[in-house]
Amino acid sequence: MTCLPAKTDKKLGLAIDLDTCVGCNACVTACKGWNDQGYGAPLSDQNPYGADPSGTFLNRVHSYQVQPADAAAITVNFPRSCLHCDDAPCVTVCPTGASYKRAEDGIVLVNEDACIGCGLCAWACPYGARELDAVAGVMKKCTLCVDRIYNENLPEEDREPACVRSCPTGARHFGDFADPDSKVSRLTAERGGFALMPEMGTNPVNRYLPPRKKDALDASPLAPLLDIKATGFAGWLDRMLGKI
């Protein structure tokens, strides 16, 4: 049934640090690489080397400019993938039961053998986290690398999502948000981590850590000397123009 579990034992998810992310797309590539060869249908590409390439990705990195009212503009790299919402609308709209949220760890998954590719779940997701694969005709989404995180055939340090494992700046953190002492919970508390589009009522699990406050240039100790008084004709002009 595509009803949501009343409560999940764990809330596995990601804390993504917008301060540290450099927008290198390593996570995008690692995600595509891992999810192309194991879990479910491969992530197909259409016309990859042609004039109009297109393909299925579970994670994409945007880049935004933020212009504060009274400071210099900043650039923020912004990875976007499934937030494994507590009140996932993508699950409840699914007519076949293919979409579900796991009661044990809160991961939102698609059973590709039951999916009819109606696309309604992608319409219901505010975050664009689901893409219908053009070849397989079924819905693809982030699995939180469910085939890595519990995989005892992998060395311990590899038992985390491919995007987290590959990030060269450590901007992506994986953990259990239901545990207040987990790394992701502490990071969220310390850094003021936030949820995306709370007005959509989805209660996402993933959190984003905001860019840290940028330093402002200190006033130069020589600043008083800059207030050079003009003299002579230039000084007269300066005074006259000041009066107009």
Partner: peptide
């Protein structure tokens, strides 16, 4: 609100 960055600026 989509990016959560609105509090910082435009």
């Amino acid at each position: 609100s989509a990016t959560g960055l609105g509090a910082l600026g435009a």
